[in-house]
Amino acid sequence: MQEKIKEILGELLIGVDLSSKTLADDGYIDSLIVVNLVSELDLEFDIEIPFDALVNENFNSVEAIEALVKSLQK
């Protein structure tokens, strides 16, 4: 799953270090990136991301996104 998330993020965040733990806090994941990311995750993992989940903590790192996806798959 992590590899797929990295692939999706890599297409959206060109030239950004994906090992960062503060992707959203540093402003790399802005609202337009969120639109694309949420759609890709929705299509790829068949999940529905609720509004409450659209907070920086869930998008700060690949691991945080993975944790979000896993929690929504349960």
């Binding site: 609202s31 969120v34 639109v35 949420v38 759609s39 991301i49 609720p50 509004f51 659209l54």
Partner: peptide, 8 residues
């Protein structure tokens, strides 16, 4: 109030 609701 607009962007995220439109997205979701």
């Amino acid at each position: 109030y607009m962007f995220y609701p439109l997205t979701l």
